[in-house]
Structures are given as C-alpha cells and as structure tokens.
Amino acid sequence: MLVLGLETSTSRSSVALVDADRVVASASLGIPRRHGEFIAPAIRFCLEQAQIDVERIGGVAVGVGPGLYTGLRVGIATAQTFAAGLHLPVVGLSGLDVLAFQVRSTSRPICAAIDARRGEVFWAFYRSSPGGVQREGELMIGRAEQLAAEIQSYGEDVLVVGDGALTHREVLAETDAILGGTANGWPEAAGLAELALPRFVREETIRPDQLRPIYLRQADARIGWEVRGRLRGGVGAAGADGADGADEASTS
C-alpha cells in the first residue's frame, strides 16, 4: 500500500510517498510561506522520480493542525480535491502527533510544540508506546510561559521538540526540559505517512470532505474590540486585513 503524505501545518512544507517498507520519495522545503507554490510541484516531483503513476496511490494522509492556518488550508484543500478525484481514502493527523512520533525512541516524556505566532504555542504531551507514541491530554494553545510552567510541573525531564521549542528556547531553558534541535523541529510528511499507514490498513479512514483543520482559535480572535467597532461602522472587503487569524496570511 502506497500512501501520499502532505504536511504543511508549520513554516515548513513537505511531501512523501511511503509504503510499508520505505520512504519511496520525499521533498521538503524549509522556507516559510511557500506552501501554496511548493506542494503541488513536489507531489509531481516525487511521483516522477519514483516513476509511479497516481493510480497506484492507495491513500492520502494530511496534516490537519494545529498550526499555521494558511499552510493548513493549502494542504487540506490540495488533499481533498486530489483524493476525491481519485476516490481515495484519507487520514488526517495532527502535526503534534507526528513530531512526537518522529522521536518515539526516547524513554523520556515528549512534549511536541509548534510555534503559533503572537508569543503563543500549540502543544501536547506524549509517551512512547510499542510501535509509536501515546498522547497524554488535549491539544493545547497558550503563552510560552504557560507551556514552561506545564513542563516544570511534569516532574520528569521532558524532551521538547518542534519549532515552538526553537522559537521559545529562552523561556523553556528556565525549565529542566531537554530541547530538541532543528533536526526534530518540524513534522515531516514521511513521518506523517508512516504514522498514518496502519490506519489505512485497518481502514480507519475518512472521506476527503470530512477533513477539517484543527484551529484552536476563533476566526475573529485577532479582531480587537476597537477594530470590531470600526468593522461595525462598516469596513468593506479590502479593509479588514488585520483580521486574518493565526498567521502569516499576507503572503503564501
């Protein structure tokens, strides 16, 4: 079974073709805001280099967040039309789960942390389990200081991975946490597809139209009350730019 993985929920974008034995092909880009331009050519690149026809793909796995909203939507919109057209089943996974899965060989508790911008972080805690990781608790969003307090109260030396750990290195260095480096800084499509593969085998899949991003913030969260007042006075299509939510919506 061949799985196409798409992961665009962080500042990084990646694509991979994975089967039970290996990562057949992968492409990854660490330049922010390029999800929209990178993903489709990268899919074609992987297929061409591996000399694989789209018909041989058995399922599509895609990162559903939490993460950067614009990137998330690029991955999900691409996955939806691609999978629907080819009648493929879909698995949506959190990039936090993938981050933890990528360091599953550790014996420490794992905290996956993705930079949510505006001084905030998306995070979740995990422990290694046979063949993977087990999430402990909910997917969270909060200030970096709040994450530091959570890590400190854990009572064990936690391994923190993800670009949330890189961005907030100074705040988290105050704790006893061990910080992962850039090698474990982002969820990669290869890890995502590998984590998703058993779900395809067990047919724990959804239809493309059932894919939903995990935002963890309201769509109008960035509109302060002052701006809301102005909006009520009437701001037309071009005027409400300040309100684009979690991320880097101004460019791709």
């Binding site: 909203y69 939507r73 909006l231 409400a240 309100a243 919506a249």
Partner: peptide
C-alpha cells in the same frame, strides 16, 4: 462584522 473578515472567509472557503 459589516464587512468581509479574511480569516472567516478563508475558513468558509
């Protein structure tokens, strides 16, 4: 909101 809010629009799209 009396106007188009970009993040609301993108989610609905």
């Amino acid at each position: 909101y009396g106007g188009v809010v970009p993040e609301v629009a993108a989610r609905a799209h």
